[in-house]
């Protein structure tokens, strides 16, 4: 099994004719994702060639794309000034899953978008996230397909390349994944750690979970408490940013220690108190997962 996406996921790419949208549409199609539509205002009626003979119709609006193609998930690659609006358009059009890849969306724009998304009962992933992949089935976003293989581990992370690092090590050790989810590095995001953990808990095939967090906010602490009370599979955790100075944004807009809140130490302590096996180095993630699975 997998969570959030599988072979039946039908993707509309918002910003399909842009540089990033175009590149990653090719990648998604090559991986086997069903990309059924693209949206670029003003380019409706065109066809996007996505390699391997794939011809994807482009629409002016998400509403038209959904109506004509039955798309049920959206991947957003539009520039930051328009990203929150693109998220709200997708939510209004009734897709079930919105994956916001765009980095640099103003936080106050996201407050409004997130409120609308919640009203509509839609799942939003991101923004500023790498998306998600259910190995062998589908990927929506930018996670490189070749570093994943199908298997029993659910991975959820706030980061991109750090996740690739951890997943790659699992894969090289022959340990596959049900789904890898990047929830994004912004202060305001849609799907959080707990949402993913709930989905993994309900997924019969996820036998272990990896949580990769970083400094800033309290999502990891909340997730740890949820794990303690609700999750019966082994959980391995890693927190990046132990050497980060307070008050400075470390690349991700959300990776900032504000006052005394959101330090790596605090998160690691909560992980340990909740029975999560804490990896000191990225390479330890693999070994702790092996241990957890009894391999």
């Amino acid at each position: 099994m997998s969570v959030f996406i599988d072979q039946s996921t039908r993707v509309v790419v918002q910003g399909i004719t842009g540089r990033d949208g175009s590149f990653h549409t090719h990648q998604m199609v090559a991986y086997g994702t069903q990309v059924v539509a693209g949206v670029t205002p003003g380019k409706g009626g065109q066809t996007f060639e996505a390699g391997n003979g794939a011809r994807i119709p482009v629409f002016n609006t998400v509403e038209a794309a959904v109506r004509e193609t039955g798309a049920n998930a959206s991947a957003i690659y539009v520039p930051p000034p328009f990203a929150a609006s693109a998220i709200m358009e997708a939510a209004d059009a009734g897709v079930a899953l919105i994956v916001g890849i765009t980095e640099g969306v103003p936080v106050q724009d996201m407050m409004t978008a997130s409120a609308l998304v919640q009203d509509k009962g839609v799942r939003l992933l991101g923004p500023n996230c790498p998306g998600l992949i259910s190995p062998g089935k589908s990927k929506v976003g930018i996670i490189p397909g070749e570093i994943t293989i199908p298997g029993p581990v659910g991975v959820v992370s706030r980061s991109g390349t750090l996740t690739y690092e951890a997943v790659n090590q699992l894969t090289q050790a022959g340990i596959g994944q049900t789904t890898c989810v990047g929830i994004g590095g912004d202060p305001i995001i849609g799907t959080d750690f707990i949402d993913c953990l709930e989905a993994f808990a309900a997924d019969g095939e996820t036998e272990a979970v990896v949580i990769i967090g970083e400094i800033g906010g309290t999502d990891e602490q909340d997730a740890a408490r949820w794990v303690k009370d609700n999750l019966n599979v082994p959980v391995v955790g890693f927190i990046a940013g132990q050497t980060a100075p307070p008050g400075r944004t470390m690349g991700h807009a959300g990776a900032i220690i504000s006052g005394s809140e959101g330090t790596a130490d605090e998160k690691i302590r909560t992980f340990k108190e909740s029975g999560i096996a804490v990896a000191e180095r990225p390479v330890d993630i693999r070994d702790l997962v092996k241990e957890g699975l009894g391999l």
Binding site: T161, E165, E214, A240, G241, T243
Partner: peptide
């Protein structure tokens, strides 16, 4: 010099480790 914010932080942490 790293690509990605999370990996960059993890690299700093590993230097310290």
């Amino acid at each position: 010099c790293v690509n990605g914010a999370g990996l960059a932080m993890a690299t700093m942490d590993l230097v310290k480790y």
